[in-house]
Every structure is written in C-alpha cells, then in structure tokens.
Design a protein around this nucleic acid. Structure first.
Lengths: 159, 159
DNA sequence: TGAAACTAGATATGAAGTATAACTATTATT
DNA sequence: AATAATAGTTATACTTCATATCTAGTTTCA
C-alpha cells in the first residue's frame, strides 16, 4: 500500500547512479534485452542466435571449413560441432567431404537453408529496426563504430 | 573461372558482411571483449562483474533488501544469494536483521567493502577509458543513450 | 621412406551463469 | 484462526563456454 514511511534499515528507491557511469553496464543491460528479443524472433524459424549466425555465415561463405567458421564466430571448435549438428539435422546445411583433405568438411547451405536464412534475416532486420525505434543512420553507424573500437581495443593505445 | 584457382569446396577468406549489418552482432562481440577485460581488472580485488555490481549497489543504497537488489540488477533472487554469500564471507557487506520484518535482511557495506568498491571503481573507470581509446564525451553519451533506448525499447516506443 | 609433429573434427567433461520449483519462517489478509 | 502472500533459501536443471583428449588424416624432414 504505501505511504513512504522511511525505515532506517530500508531503502525506498534503489539508485544505480554509480554503475550508470559505465558504458559496460548499459551495454550489458541492452544486450540482455536485445538477445531475448532476437531469440524470440528466431524461435519460429527453429533458430537461436548462434545457429542463425552460423547459418548466415555458411550461406555467405559456402565451402568454408568448421575451423574457419569457429574462428570467424569466435566460438570454440567443440561447441561449433553441436551447432552444426543442429543445422545439419534440420536440413539447412550439409557437411561435404573435401577431396583434397579427407579430415575436413566443407560446409554448404541447402536450398532450404538459404531460404530460411533470408527469411530470418528479414525478420531480424525488422525487429532490430523496431528495437532501435527510429534511430537515424548516422547515429547507428556511430554506435557501430564505437562497438568496433571496443572490440578491437584490447591493446588500447590507438587513437 | 579466371582468377587464382578457385576450389569449389574451400574458401580463402571468411566474410561476415551479412552479420555486420546488425548492431546486435557488433554489440555481442564488443561485450565479449569488455567483459573479459573487466573481469581481468576485477580479479586482483577478488571480484567478478556481478559481485562488483552488487557491492557497488549496496554501497550506494545501504539498507536495501535482497529482493530489491535482485530486481535492480535484473538477476533472480536465488542466484543473488550465493553472490551475497561471497561478499559477506569476504567481509565486504553484512546482512543485518530488519527489526520491522524478521524475514528480511538489510544489506550494508562494511568499511572494507566501501574502500574496496572505491578502488575497484577507479580501476574500472581507468580500464574503460583505455578500452574506449580516447572517445570524446559527446560520442560516449550518444552511445549510452542508444543503449538505453535499446534497453527500454521492448515495446518500441521511444522516449 | 618412416617417425614425429601437426591439423580437422569429434567426444567427454567440467565450470559458470541462469531459471524454476519448492521449502522455512515470517507477515498480511479476511 | 485460517489463509494467502512475501523474504530469503535450497535444490535442481539447463544453457553456455572452455579444456583436455581422442581419431583420423596430413605434413615435415632426418
């Protein structure tokens, strides 16, 4: 019910002012929303974020090998295996033997995989546009540039 | 096909052009770097991202209850318990009984906790500044505003 | 050539984060 | 008083992510 009756050992409203000074804090919270949203959009396609990313990469780079894909997506090889199992069982990609190296598999999208990737991408684009709520392109590019700077900025010293 | 001997089943360089169109893709990659970096900085203090966040919130909102903190940090109550156990065992916070409600605990920082939070915050600030590599304040605020828009933008209406 | 080192993909496993149900003890409702 | 609701906790399970190891195949080079 609540008249604001202040008790010495309680707090009426919680402030996160100290954390709000960090970009990381905002990014983490935004990522949580974005990820939940994206997974909700992808669910009707039978995809999750990782499987979607992997599928799109295979569509865009047909013939690439698993190690290349793992490297590009920055995920460990063992973890990629189950992701590709999922895509393969869904009939979206194939693992084709490479004649020149019998250890390796070339990843290729099926027609079904290409079609699904296209539809899922359209849905994602629409959803992200909705989430950004009419952000102008200049701002959007600026945000992306900032993300790229953070991603590449482990060593720190470039300006 | 002309150029250098194209093998039908292999790919020379991997392109992520299709994914680079999404802000979420860049954010996820940037978050991975940022999180690794932050945890590295916090390790000497015996803290992780969540324990640091919780500690700072307790310092800033002394007397708050666990449910409030869980809500503020968007983590589930059961998961907060072990985080607070960690902070309490490290002597950084105390769980004090609330006289008006014997079910509840008021969270308060110890002197040690306040000092550690201050030092860790300074270290985090320095590290984030390094990671942003001299990004100007206007851009920084713009990025934060964009993150806030995403975070609040589940329904789509902007503020 | 052939042994050693290396690579591609797969398997097994464990740590960490996250979500849900249910328990206890208290408090609020009727 | 009986019932419902709440604060914190426990138990548990599921997902993500990382490491070590295995196999099969390839490369190196003495």
């Amino acid at each position: 019910m609540g008249a604001p009756l202040v008790k010495a050992t309680e707090v009426d409203s919680v402030s996160d002012a100290a954390l709000r000074g960090f970009i990381g804090y905002h990014m983490k919270r935004a990522m949580a929303v974005l990820q939940a949203d994206l997974n909700r959009v992808l669910k009707p396609f039978g995809l999750r974020m990782v499987t979607y990313s992997a599928l799109v990469m295979v569509v865009e780079n047909p013939g690439l090998r698993q190690a290349q894909l793992a490297d590009a997506l920055a995920i460990e090889r063992p973890n990629l295996v189950v992701i590709l199992d999922e895509l393969e069982e869904a009939g979206l990609i194939t693992r084709d033997k490479v004649p020149t190296d019998r250890r390796a598999y070339a990843l290729n999208p099926t027609l079904k995989g290409r079609k699904l990737a296209e539809r899922a991408t359209a849905a994602n684009r629409a959803d992200e546009a909705r989430l950004l709520g009419g952000m102008d392109d200049a701002t959007r590019d600026l945000v992306i540039a900032a993300m790229n700077r953070i991603e590449g900025g482990q060593g720190g010293a470039q300006t």
